[in-house]
Amino acid sequence: MSHPFPPVTIESRRLGKPENICSVTEAAEFLLMKWPVHQGQKLKAARQRCYDVLDGNASAADARSAFIEAAKEADIFVDYIKTGR
């Protein structure tokens, strides 16, 4: 089960363009395989929150919130309100 959530747009440095993350499974994969930094308290918390959801101990909304905070920490969160896109 992928545990879908509303899209979170991040700047994918590997692809050089924005990418939408739409589920806990996608978030976990991105956090583990494609994340641009390897340390950070919010990164660690987001990874744990994804594991918690996959174990049935948290909601997809919790994982989404943690993913957004980690993306802000890594400076890859695309905030369309701020950017005017």
Rank of each mutant, 00 (worst) to 15 (best):
M1G: 14
S2H: 03
H3W: 12
H3N: 11
H3S: 13
H3E: 14
P4A: 09
F5R: 06
P6R: 10
P6I: 05
P7V: 06
T9F: 12
T9P: 02
T9Q: 14
I10Y: 05
E11C: 12
S12V: 03
S12N: 15
S12W: 08
R13M: 13
R13D: 12
R14F: 09
R14Y: 07
L15P: 00
G16F: 10
G16Y: 03
K17Y: 06
K17P: 00
P18G: 10
P18M: 04
E19L: 14
N20E: 14
N20S: 13
I21Y: 03
I21G: 04
C22L: 08
S23A: 05
V24N: 00
A27D: 03
A27E: 00
A28E: 05
A28F: 10
F30C: 06
L31E: 01
L32E: 08
M33Y: 10
K34I: 02
W35K: 02
P36W: 06
V37Y: 07
V37R: 14
V37L: 13
H38N: 13
Q39F: 14
G40M: 03
G40T: 04
G40Y: 08
G40E: 07
Q41G: 14
Q41N: 09
Q41K: 13
K42I: 01
K42N: 15
L43A: 03
L43P: 05
L43G: 08
L43M: 11
K44M: 10
A45D: 11
A45V: 01
A46C: 06
A46R: 00
R47M: 09
Q48T: 02
R49I: 06
R49G: 01
R49H: 02
R49K: 13
R49L: 10
Y51L: 03
Y51D: 03
D52L: 00
D52H: 03
V53C: 06
L54C: 08
L54I: 07
D55Y: 00
G56C: 09
G56W: 00
N57H: 10
N57W: 01
A58M: 09
A60H: 02
A60D: 08
A61Y: 08
A61N: 11
A61Q: 14
A61V: 10
A63T: 01
A63G: 07
A63W: 00
A63Y: 01
A63K: 02
R64A: 15
A66H: 00
I68K: 13
E69A: 15
E69H: 05
E69I: 01
E69N: 13
E69V: 03
E69P: 00
K72G: 12
K72Q: 14
K72M: 12
E73T: 06
A74H: 09
A74T: 09
I76H: 07
I76P: 05
F77T: 02
F77K: 06
D79S: 15
Y80A: 15
Y80Q: 14
Y80V: 08
Y80G: 14
I81F: 12
I81W: 05
K82E: 15
K82H: 08
K82G: 02
K82Y: 05
